[in-house]
């Protein structure tokens, strides 16, 4: 009896010691030398692993930051300037502040503006739909409405508005990681600067068809008439391929173009209303992108 106990203890102890040695040797042999600063940087990151920075995840981004010469090349869109400052201080380097961005849906092809010409009957995915054909409306450039951007957004910032059939970006939640921009097969979503007090002016259309064709497909289409470009005092607007584009780095938010646009394709959002109506209060973040606001704005002009 006693002998059994002694033997058991002896064998188990021996086995334990032996395995400990094996584990130690293996751990030594396969040890990966890593810069300890990578861990420190990673701790500062949001940990969303969204890939918005262009790296495979937060750890990869931390490594990228540590290894890169110039921190200005690295930017974590989710964490923003705060996080980048912290990263810079961890690494003992400097980083310039970047302007905050937000995703903007550049299509106003609501069910009303852009009537359906056929019925899509396949898998509800923009990619599948785009690979098949131009879409179920007359416009072959605009939003397809299957919500690939909604499913790809890790921050729940995009929802589909059932009334318009278009995605709506929640500016509070949007981190400008750019996942939706990459996903959208039609390139409808763009990252634009948040702008002074969140005020932005942009062309809500990407239709490259000629004016008449675009107008026929959608009432709110940019027809490439160049009126906005002519009226812009800051040369911020260019018209290329029958569609206008406002360079947000040059735009001074004067809204002259908004008044000029014959199809109301230029949207101005989050501007304070001059004569405020109760239902058109400016601070209504979840509805700020939709079609309602710009029309209100236009009435004011």
């Amino acid at each position: 009896m006693t002998q059994t106990i002694i033997w058991t203890i002896a064998i188990l102890t021996l086995l334990g010691a032996l395995l400990a040695v094996v584990l130690y040797v293996v751990a030594e042999k396969f040890k990966v030398e890593e810069d300890p600063r990578i861990d420190d940087v990673e701790k500062e990151l949001p940990g969303a692993n969204c890939g918005g920075c262009g790296q495979a995840g937060c750890r990869a981004f931390a490594q990228f930051c540590v290894e890169s010469e110039d921190l200005d090349k690295c930017f974590c869109p989710v964490g923003g300037n705060d996080v980048m400052q912290k990263v810079a201080s961890v690494l003992g380097r400097e980083v310039a502040a970047k302007e905050p961005m937000v995703a903007v849906v550049r299509c106003n092809g609501t069910c009303e503006n852009r009537p359906k010409t056929n019925e899509y009957g396949g898998y509800q995915s923009c990619r599948v739909k785009a690979a098949l054909y131009s879409g179920d409306t007359g416009c072959s450039f605009g939003c397809l409405g299957c919500g690939d951007c909604v499913s790809v957004c890790q921050f729940g910032a995009i929802t589909m508005d059932p009334a318009t059939g278009l995605p709506v970006v929640d500016e509070e939640k949007c981190t400008a990681c750019g996942a939706c921009v990459k996903t959208c097969p039609k390139g409808v979503i763009e990252l634009r600067n948040k702008g002074r007090r969140n005020m932005r002016v942009y062309v809500s259309c990407v239709n490259k068809d000629k004016g008449a064709v675009a107008r026929k497909a959608c009432k709110a289409a940019c027809i490439g008439c160049s009126k906005c470009a002519k009226v812009c005092p800051f040369e911020a607007i260019t018209v290329e391929n029958n569609v206008a584009y406002i360079d947000y780095t040059k735009c001074k938010l004067c809204k002259k173009c908004v008044a000029e646009c014959p199809t109301a394709a230029i949207h101005a959002v989050n501007f304070p209303v001059v004569k405020p109506k109760p239902e058109a209060a400016p601070c209504h973040p979840e509805r700020s992108e939709g079609s309602v606001k710009p029309e209100v704005e236009k009435k004011e002009e």
Binding site: G122, Y123, R127, V128
Partner: peptide
Amino acid sequence: PLLDIIRI
């Protein structure tokens, strides 16, 4: 929608 997904 097997083929729809597989094709892409």
